[in-house]
């Protein structure tokens, strides 16, 4: 079997890209849902907006560093190849990164924006053209909801793209199924939600019950959806052609079995699901009162993130070891 040519930088990139997409998605949802004419979960929305641009930027930087010729990366944007997932994905990532920065700007308070601008060295600041300055002074908070709406499809697109990049390669049967894109998408959205659980709990301002209810119901839904994709992926694969069956052997008895079942399925998916369901039980059953136990919630959030990383690790490495033979 050949040596893998895509390694940890790509794993990180897929994870970070997905994480940003999830953060944006969850934040946009929190912005979009209204209560008495304003967004119902402003702290969640704001945290999502503040965090979203960074993972994807770091991930893209890693991807560029992983190129054999990093200084030529711009060539991607000068040759549009619509049949290449990487070409389409690069445009998508570019659009998403700019959008998430605009969204972050919209979620900053007026004073925060001013103080950020004040940090720009005097010489440069006075050179900002008046037209741009007028834009910067605009109260962008009215734009939050619009940006959230525009961002939904783009964030979902980025989440899907991280899966399609692998799924569209027919030479690697482990990836080349129509379930990988959804698997990566739901895992991405779930990571974003989990990251917000963690962020909100570490926040100075104590978390509200209704916020936790929002995040928990979202994350539980997403994990369940992910399970409903991972299981058919395995079952359908086992009932598929020989090449696919041989590819699946990577996680069914092969070198990635333990990582897949223990670290991804167990620690990264079922364990956080159990914790969240247990915490959420009063709401689901309608009996008892819903408390927040920060320690459990933090654990669950951390595990979801870990599981998301493991999923990418397994797919990137196991997939490259498969082929037709």
């Amino acid at each position: 079997m050949r040596e893998p040519v895509w390694e940890f930088l790509i794993v990180n990139y897929l994870f970070l890209g997905g994480l940003s997409a999830g953060l944006y998605f969850a934040s946009a949802l929190a912005t979009w849902i209204q209560e008495d004419g304003r967004s119902a979960y402003p702290r969640i929305a704001r945290w999502g907006a503040l965090l979203a641009p960074w993972p994807v930027s770091l991930g893209s930087a890693l991807l560029i560093l992983d190129l054999g010729k990093p200084f030529r990366f711009w060539k991607i944007f000068f040759h549009f190849r619509w049949r290449s997932p990487m070409s389409i994905g690069s445009w998508l990532l570019l659009a998403f990164t700019f959008l998430s920065i605009a969204y972050l700007w919209a979620w900053l308070d007026q004073e925060e924006r001013y103080s950020l601008q004040a940090r720009i060295p005097e010489k440069l600041r006075t050179r900002i053209p008046a037209r741009v300055q007028r834009w910067l002074d605009l109260d962008a908070s009215a734009w939050r909801r619009n940006l959230a709406m525009v961002g939904f499809p783009i964030a979902v697109g980025v989440g899907i793209y991280t899966g399609v990049l692998l799924g569209a390669v027919q030479a690697r049967p482990f990836w080349n199924t129509n379930l990988v894109a959804q698997m990566f998408l739901f895992s991405a959205l779930s990571s974003g939600t989990a990251a917000l659980v963690v962020a909100r709990l570490l926040d100075r301002e104590p978390v509200e019950l209704k916020e936790m209810r929002f995040l928990y119901s979202m994350d539980i839904t997403l994990i369940v959806l992910e399970l409903f994709i991972v299981l058919p992926y395995l079952i359908h694969g086992e009932l598929s052609s020989l090449a696919v069956k041989q590819a699946l052997a990577q996680v069914l008895g092969g070198p990635f079995t333990i990582v897949f079942w223990m670290l991804f399925m167990g620690v990264g998916l079922l364990l956080p699901l159990t914790i969240e369901l247990f915490e959420f039980k009063p709401v689901i059953l309608g009996k008892g009162t819903f408390h927040i136990q920060p320690r459990w919630a933090l654990t669950a959030g951390g595990l979801v993130l870990f599981g998301g990383y493991m999923l990418r690790y397994i797919f990137v490495f196991a997939g490259q070891a498969t082929g037709f033979r």
Binding site: R2, V5, K69, R72, M86, A171, R172
Partner: peptide, 27 residues
């Protein structure tokens, strides 16, 4: 001259016919 060394093609070739050139860092 146009290869950025992303190695996507190496992965996408079912016959494992491509390699990363350790000197030029292209394919």
């Amino acid at each position: 001259d146009d290869c950025i060394g992303c190695k996507y093609c190496i992965i996408a070739c079912p016959y494992n016919a491509r390699y990363h050139n350790p000197e030029t860092h292209t394919v």
